[in-house]
Simulated scan of single mutants.
Amino acid sequence: MIIIKATKLSESGAMPSEEMFAAMGKFNEALIAAGVMQAGDGLKPSKHGKRVLFVGDKQEVVDGPFPVAEKLVAGFWIWKVGSMDEALEWMKRCPHPMPGEDAEVELRPFYEMEDFGEELTPELREQEIRLQSELARQQAV
């Protein structure tokens, strides 16, 4: 997963320029043509969001905006690559995601079922496979 960190400008709700849309569109086309991009999107500023805090056995809802823009997420991609090195090579081709500001992008791998060891019992593994299949079926519709 590629996580694009928010900035003060993205949190302000400023829209990308036509040039930025074109550059990212070209990059996304290359990702899709290579079979790398599985999903991706930008997120509205945190003023449109909510957080749910789990405190003990209670839940507390907090309305946005949230402080410290640099700790927020402005957008994401989900890529299917063979290694972190391959993801980094793709990232080096990415247009600057926040022109006019310093930006941070974080690359994080998803867990695979084999990462969970014995805690993922055969029954739980079967359930996970069934759920993934159902998600794929729903997305195909």
Rank of each mutant, 00 (worst) to 15 (best):
H96K: 08
E89H: 06
M24V: 09
M37V: 13
T121F: 01
L43C: 12
I32P: 00
K50A: 12
P97S: 00
M15L: 14
M91S: 15
F27L: 01
R130H: 10
A69R: 01
K47G: 05
F66L: 02
D102Q: 11
G42R: 14
V141M: 15
G75L: 13
S83Q: 04
L88D: 03
A14E: 11
D115H: 09
V36H: 10
S12N: 04
E18P: 01
S10P: 04
K80Q: 12
E101M: 12
E119Y: 09
Q139D: 05
K50I: 11
G117T: 10
A140Y: 00
G82K: 14
G49V: 07
P99V: 08
W90Y: 10
N28F: 04
G49Q: 07
E18A: 15
E89K: 13
G64L: 01
G64S: 00
E123A: 11
F116Q: 03
G117V: 09
I32G: 02
N28G: 01
W79R: 08
G40I: 12
G64Y: 05
A39W: 12
I4W: 02
S46M: 04
W77G: 02
L135S: 06
Y111F: 15
K80N: 12
S12A: 05
Y111G: 05
L9G: 03
C94T: 14
V141D: 03
L120R: 04
G64W: 03
E126F: 02
K92Q: 09
F54T: 14
S17N: 08
G42K: 09
A39M: 10
R125T: 10
A14R: 14
R51C: 00
G75S: 08
M1V: 08
R51L: 07
E123P: 01
Y111C: 12
A74D: 05
A140Q: 11
Q132G: 12
A22Q: 09
K5I: 10
T7M: 05
I3H: 06
W90T: 07
G49L: 01
F27V: 05
A140F: 06
K58C: 09
L31K: 09
E126M: 02
L135W: 02
